[in-house]
Design a binder for these strands. Sequence first.
DNA 1: CCTGGGTCCAGGAGTTGCTAATAAGCAAC
Length: 574
Amino acid sequence: MTNKEIASALRQTGDLIELTGGNPYRANAFGRAARTIRGLEDAVTDLVQDDELTSVNGIGDGLSEQIQDLLQRGSFDLRDELLSAVPTGLLDVLKVKGLGTKKVRTLWQELGITSLDELDEAARADQVRSLSGFGKKTQENIIENVALLRAYSNRRRFADAIRAAREVHTVLTDGDAFDRVVFTGELRRKVETVQALDMVVATSDGADHVIQFLQEADDTAPFDPDTISVTTEVEDADALVETPLTSGLSLRLFVCTPDAFGTTLWRTTGSKDHVATYIREHGDPGMHATEAAIFEGAGVDVVPPELREDDGEWEAATDGHLPNLISVDDLQGTVHNHSTYSDGSHSLRQMAEKARSMGLSYFGICDHSQSLQVASGMKPDEVERQQDEIRSLNEEYAENTESPFRIFSGIESDILRDGSLDYDDEILASFDFIVASIHSGFNMTVNEATERIITAVENPYTSILGHPTGRLLLVREGYEIDHDRVIDACASNNVAIELNANPYRLDIDWRYIKRAIEKGVLISINPDAHAMIELENVRWGVEVARKGWLTAEHCLNAKSLDEFEAWLTARRPA
DNA sequence: CCTGGGTCCAGGAGTTGCTAATAAGCAAC
């Protein structure tokens, strides 16, 4: 069990205590322990092994025992009791933005609401606004945010979908029952959230063979062998075999014969418009064993799957101008990362060493700035202390002339309400570079958000605009911005735009990357790592960067150490 | 439920501002 999983079980227990009207101090102890464990450097399992769990601040004998139960049997008595006392659906209600434990308890006690459906119904029936502590606005927000949650529940983030898809793929390819089993659809196009796991199954034995295989799969398979449906009237394949996965997603298998594999893969991969545009220009491609044959038949270059969105790829393929898309190997540094100086789990040295072990030649540290108290943002004296440590680490690294490596002193500066950065100029000037991001006051109009960001971009100390919309995929919508105006401002101020590679963010949205490139704005693929392992999140950023037509040439952290340093020097305020 | 000072119990609570209510709850990482 990971620290994260332990933390969420504890947090949930704290929530349940509050929902049932238990001792608030007790609830708080669980919440505090959850926060502490989430930010812990050591694995809780190791601490238990060494009998050192109670030495963690905020974990005493009681919590220590419950955590050990949690590790041994997946839960503990108090949690079980609370879970049986609270309707399951109430935990979904708690996910509605704007509702916390207090409000959810009121809804439960006063209106008997125990599920999202009941909440939605009550809000629409105008029953919520009259409750004490609620009002018209809260009732409207509930309706809106329940709808969002429902929409989210049908999709999965790309990273989660890939993990689930690999699991299924392993089952389907076990025993070589089929000629080919290949990802297709949104999965293959690398869309940031997917609705179904689509795969093409090539076999000469027909859909029945596929169904039989699913039915005979053993109990550990991630789908229900009893719930399989088959459609034969599909445009893009011989048959479509569908089954719900235990993860809640739907598995869709497009079945075809091996000699039609290329056509089926092509038809199911591209967006509707991508496929339609081809057919309009070149006619129906007919049956092909390989995808390449379809492109060859039209005399155009093979379009990478992630570009098949009907957004100029056909013109580029016809003219031989398809981009040479970026890959993980092109990245030479990483610039937006956290450490224990703010809310990261690992020390500056550990984080830098991890970057170095990944073959990178520079590491930018960007802990949170002073205003962001929830993430223990750095006060000026901590900034000074960190910069001293950076200097001494860099002296160490400088001794190794064979594989140059350098740490750059950055800050993830909050963009305050008025668009200003979070320190006075003297401190801002002490950094090698600054990532400017919004972390508070999300409730803005498009114009307010855009102005706020442009003010920050125009600040001479800003080098990179961090996660431009603040979205968390399938958790919350970001604030809306006018991307064109923001991109223009970045272009005229030589500010790069972050592609935050955290699988929850993937922000800037890939749909705007092409426009940024056209304006000459560099994209920085940043893991925003809060722990060593999260440095590897850049891969998700690279996936969607490719989708946005990004090449190494237009990527800030694909620059070599010397080039990156030159870029920073050139744009430093005089 | 935890910590800390003294062995059982008193006192505690990441912080701050915003929202949407008219005092308190929620959100930000």
